[in-house]
């Protein structure tokens, strides 16, 4: 990978972290409503994955979507504006935290019903297959989504129809507050691919390089063979399930242990060790991410609310 790409990935990871930290503050200040699920701790998964895609490959994810949106190239301004419910958000303030998307950036949402977007992902891939191209759909979801029927219907369909879907399970150890071993019949989510005769892999989701390499391999396989593939990324969310989670289901020691493996710290050490960048170059990117986050907050705060005329817009096309 060239230096430029590696530094871009580093910048994106830091940007996600900063944007979400500010988001948490704004939520606590009452400026963001509804549910908000932070991606902090999981940045390496989305960053590595999306760095490995071609722009024509589609991305669809669940409600923990701010990071995915930023990685796909949606601006921090639009992400922050959507969080604040402003007209300048990509969903005009009508979607909120859980519903970020951009057709232009090939990011198909942001979906809030657990598992509900998996059959839709199969459909995106079906649309491409029907059109005769070899685009891939990358569908991300949590470990909790693998216990619901949608997952099984979607994986089965993708296999029997040879759909180009890269299924990516972000196993962050908990579906809300229920640990994987309490909710899933198998501990390793990748095992579920076996039931569908589907290839799979399991990767350290805290290491962006490992995610990138696993994603590259998976994407190549999916594109060339026209077969789906399940990639499990083992990761951890440092914050609660959503804002206001009392976190009674896990010990602070456990959280601390994972935090020692901060994906940004790991990647920074990698970049320095391999002399890809100097401390000062990385510090400059940190500053850039901070400045872009500050600008995004200013932009969002200054943006107007959607007017009441928006209430009845976009229910139907015709």
């Amino acid at each position: 990978m060239d230096k430029q790409k590696l530094l871009q990935m580093y910048y994106e990871m830091v940007l996600i972290r900063r944007v979400e930290e500010r988001g948490a503050e704004l939520y606590q200040a009452g400026k963001i409503g509804g549910f908000m699920h932070l991606y902090i701790g999981q940045e390496a998964v989305s960053t590595g994955l999306i760095a490995a895609r071609e722009p024509r490959d589609r991305v669809i994810t669940a409600y923990r979507d701010h990071g995915v949106a930023l990685n796909c190239g949606i601006s921090a301004n639009e992400v922050m504006a959507e969080l604040l419910g402003k007209i300048t958000g990509m969903s005009k303030g009508k979607g909120g935290s859980m519903h970020m998307a951009s057709v232009e950036k090939n990011m198909w949402g942001g979906h809030a019903i657990v598992g509900g977007h998996l059959p839709i992902a199969a459909g995106l891939a079906l649309g491409d297959q029907y059109a005769g191209n070899d685009n891939i759909t990358i569908c991300m979801f949590g470990d909790g989504a693998t216990n619901i029927g949608y997952f099984h219907e979607a994986l089965n369909l993708s296999k029997i129809w040879n759909l180009r879907v890269l299924w990516v399970c972000e196993n962050n150890q908990y579906g809300m507050g229920t640990a994987v071993e309490r909710a899933s019949a198998v501990d390793e989510i990748r095992q579920k691919a076996d039931g569908y005769g589907m290839k799979s892999d399991r990767v350290d989701g805290m290491d962006v390089i490992k995610v990138y390499e696993a994603a590259q391999k998976a994407i190549q396989y999916v594109r060339e063979t026209s077969q789906p593939y399940l990639l499990e990324a083992v990761t951890y969310r440092f914050r609660g399930h959503s804002m206001g989670d009392p976190e009674r289901y896990r010990q602070q020691d456990e959280v601390k242990k994972w935090q020692e493996n901060d994906p940004i710290g790991i990647f920074r050490a990698y970049l320095l060790k391999h002399q890809v960048a100097t401390e000062s170059e990385l510090n400059a990117l940190d500053d850039q991410a901070q400045a872009d986050t500050d600008k995004a907050v200013e932009f969002a705060e200054a943006s107007p609310e959607p007017g009441l005329e928006e209430l009845f817009k976009d229910i139907y096309v015709d």
Partner: peptide, 28 residues
Amino acid sequence: PQRVKDTPIAENAILGAAIGAAMVGQRP
């Protein structure tokens, strides 16, 4: 079989797939 697709008995897959294909420009 490309235009008249038999599906498994799986209504979520049928409708989800139709929605996804529609979102990217087909008319299922």
